[in-house]
Computed example of a mutant assay.
Amino acid sequence: MASRQQPRRTARVLALLSLSQIRIKSDQLEDLEINDLILGAIRTLTIEVENTLETAADELNRSNDKIFKSETRTSDVSSARIMLKDAIALTQKAINRVGTIVEIPEFIQVSRETEVKQYAIDLISCIRNNKEEIDSLIDGLMTDWTVNRLTQIDANILRLAVAEMKFFQQDHKIAINEAIEIAKQYSDDDGYRFINGVLRKVSNKLLEN
């Protein structure tokens, strides 16, 4: 089972990361090459790295202002330390993402490339063609929230898992567990817990019908 799931796991990650970067029409998706998907994934991660480093730089500047431009009250120093700690954490996150970018081509190469490409394209196509229905299902199970208000990564992780459960007849437990593992890598602690909760509600709803 593990060897059978590995190409699909790779395809899920590739679909997730390239989804927002693929601009061609749905009927042209079959013409995509694996390198097109890899390039889309790398672009997504590169944008995230740039945004994360920009936020880290802002935190460093604010920390600097607290220390050097204000009276050195204990509260200011404590606040500056928190900002510095946040900046370091953000920088580490960016470094980890750079590592992911470097690993993507090798990650694909060690999997069954044709199977990875086709399943990634199938997922992207399914989400594009059924986005309204998928989003409506997710929105109906969230309280005072909508999928469009989530981060792009979290929203697309949900869409991928819902597409697998609803349109690919994937075992719900597998779909949810795979989504959680991806969220642990590309979201944060709050993100993956939230995704877990929403997908369990989706699973229950689908099983009722």
Rank of each mutant, 00 (worst) to 15 (best):
I82E: 10
F68K: 11
I153D: 01
A94H: 02
F107K: 00
D171P: 09
T151F: 03
R193T: 11
D135H: 13
H172C: 09
A179G: 08
I134F: 09
S18F: 00
T72V: 11
R128D: 03
A94R: 00
G40W: 03
D58G: 14
N148P: 09
L19I: 06
S187F: 00
V102R: 05
N177Y: 11
K25L: 12
V98Y: 04
I42G: 01
D27C: 06
L137M: 14
R43N: 11
K131H: 10
L14T: 07
V102L: 01
M1E: 08
N51D: 15
D76P: 02
Q118M: 12
I176P: 12
F167P: 04
N148A: 15
I108E: 02
Q5M: 01
G191I: 12
I121V: 13
S111T: 04
I153K: 04
K205S: 13
V13H: 00
D135R: 13
G99A: 01
F194H: 15
K85Y: 02
I104E: 02
T100E: 08
G140L: 10
Q169E: 14
V77Y: 13
R73T: 13
I138H: 04
R81Q: 15
I157D: 04
A183V: 06
T46F: 04
S26N: 14
D190T: 09
I134V: 14
H172A: 13
K184E: 11
A183P: 04
D27R: 07
R97V: 08
V102E: 01
T46W: 06
S187N: 04
M83G: 06
E181F: 03
R97S: 03
D189G: 08
L29K: 11
D190S: 14
